[in-house]
Amino acid sequence: MTLLSIPKEKAKDWIEGICFFILGFIGALIVGWFLFPMALYSEHTQPIDFNHAIHLENVEGDTLTEKCLYCHEFYEDGTFAGIPRIEKCEDCHDPESPMGDSLEEKKFLTKYQAQEKEIPWYHYYRQPPCVYFPHISHVKMAKIACKTCHGDHGTSELLPVYQENRISGYSRNIWGKHISGYKEHTWDRMKMDDCAECHTKKGHEEFNSCFTCHK
């Protein structure tokens, strides 16, 4: 007795059943891939639409890393500045003579610089408070390019919308763009496994010791 011996009057039920299954399957995919991420992440636009590409052209530096370090600098004790404060911007941007006629620059000069107010950036790459990440060990000692972890962020013309996990409060860049956790590039995700993967690949398994990255 095989499935082929299904009587004709039963065949209609089978077709209906299969249709319902396909519909349900597609429905589940829509929920999982689109509706769930929408519900999970809240979206915020940055206070200023910063153009990394233009800045990269105009700062000094021989290599790309050096250019990045012009603004995202290291302090003397080796700590990393992260997103620069407005005094760093003031090195170049003068309220008397703006560098261009961009609206975003005007916004910076009037809204923040004139009032001596820090720009409330959203941090795409801020790790949870239990994580310790020394940029200097990676950039200076291991000579890893910024792109390896941050992707094309440094050459982008527009800032992406900041997405925050409503439950954990962390940026979506940490979990990764794909809700499934799928990873194509080194910069797609910033989870513990990604740190460990790179450490292992580079033959530094001793850095997979817990206290290397946890505090």
């Binding site: 003397e76 004790d77 700590t79």
Partner: peptide, 21 residues
Amino acid sequence: CTFCHHRYMRAKRKAEAEGRR
């Protein structure tokens, strides 16, 4: 107690800024 491990990391960071390991 962690023997103030963050102080170890702090010292290491400073040493690396000066190019030492």
